[in-house]
Write a protein that binds this DNA or RNA. Structure first.
Lengths: 219, 219
DNA sequence: GCGTAGTGTTGAACATGTTCAAAACCTGGA
DNA sequence: TCCAGGTTTTGAACATGTTCAACACTACGC
């Protein structure tokens, strides 16, 4: 079988994503991926050093789709809570087709040292892209926050996003209704906390939170 | 090889834990476990339906050890922050020998539907035990909290615990120093939030948080 | 055209989690 | 003692992720 220059890799990713969707992660064998891509098993391993690594393709695609779906919806909205809700709901919608087996993916990603981990150096670009989206969410909103807290806030919002994703992969309700409920209930809390953060009573708390975020990031 | 009545299961768990400690989760084969336990591979599968399931033994043991280590330290302390810090540090100390490969365990546990997941029905007892520990932490402290929030607080503190564990499995610093730092910085925030929760400005927020916890639990 | 170095590809072999039919071992009743 | 039914144990067979030595192809200098 002859394929166009450089397309072998793409063929493998495409085949893998198709099969993941059809049979889930476990149900997809490397032999099946290779066969559908029209290559040998060994060849698949020439491009991807493990089955797990195939997931990175899925992951990158998802982040890009999320951004593309969220940004247009944000136009013209300036209420932080509203912007947050739209962004999180956009994720739920975009990711819905993969919910049934995404758990497998995130389990892999949760492993320390795994390149797919959201905290790994290799995921740096994808993570930055995700955090950037929340920077956009924040910048388009009319809110006043302490400058120092403001710098870390996008990362905090991304952590909230991770929490929602964690809930989502465990959510078996139709159309992820329970996750949407969680978003509806979490977003006002976060928005209110952000607003209240300027209160004198809460100032020191804000400082402490900033420190924790920096520790989390590794600084 | 003759073994005392009913001890086969124990022999397998013991062998598995030894080997996990020596070679990590990946590095331990079911064949090796069976061999060290003095049984056949098939026999190991008679008692544990998968390699993952062997981890439940480790998990149960850890929760029990944690409780045993934490409770004596709490005696005589009534400051909530202090009690929280002691409890979390007790975990870090107890779990230290397993840190290098615990990530593998928690990755398994993070899988939706997996019996080991802290949110699964099968983990109910272990989870209740863990939440109960935080109920003790709370009850021994001299703090006044809103009654409704108070009911959900143990579960919230357990969620904080989960967060610390998540950080811990990614922590490669010597003696988990960074995790201890995280505890030192997180505990005052939580303690202060609990104290502030009675402020009129924050009352509605408390209500909202209670709702979220209930949603998380599935009620 | 021809050799050569690098890149891409192959499929059999291997390692290891898991299954299963058969065998061995009970245990209580006749 | 012997049998019947259940429980425990065995190890070979299977499925599938992964490796690797060999082969094919491509590009380039001569």
């Amino acid at each position: 079988m002859t394929t166009a220059r450089g397309s072998t890799r793409d063929a493998i990713v495409t085949a893998a994503l198709e099969l993941f969707r059809e049979h889930g992660f476990e149900g997809t064998t490397m032999r099946a991926v290779a066969e559908r891509a029209g290559v040998s098993v060994g060849n698949a391993y020439y491009y991807f050093s493990s089955k797990d690594e195939l997931v990175q393709g899925f992951y990158d695609q998802l982040v890009a789709e999320h951004r593309a779906a969220a940004l247009p919806e944000l136009a013209g909205r300036s209420d932080l809570a509203e912007r947050l809700r739209l962004t999180l709901n956009a994720w739920i919608t975009v990711a819905e087709p993969y919910r049934a087996f995404a758990g497998r993916f995130f389990a892999v990603a949760a492993q320390p040292g795994n390149p797919l981990s959201p905290f790994s150096p290799q995921s740096g670009p994808a993570r930055d892209a995700a955090v950037d989206l929340y920077r956009d969410v924040l910048e388009g909103a009319r809110v006043d926050v302490d400058a120092e807290l403001g710098r870390e806030l996008p990362e905090l919002l991304w952590l909230q996003h991770l929490g929602v994703v964690l809930f989502w992969v465990h959510d078996t309700s139709a159309d992820a209704a329970r996750t949407r409920l969680l978003v509806d209930r979490t977003v006002p809390i976060v928005a209110r906390l952000v607003r209240l953060s300027r209160l004198p009573v809460l100032r020191p708390l804000g400082r402490q939170v900033v420190d924790v975020v920096r520790l989390l990031r590794g600084t």
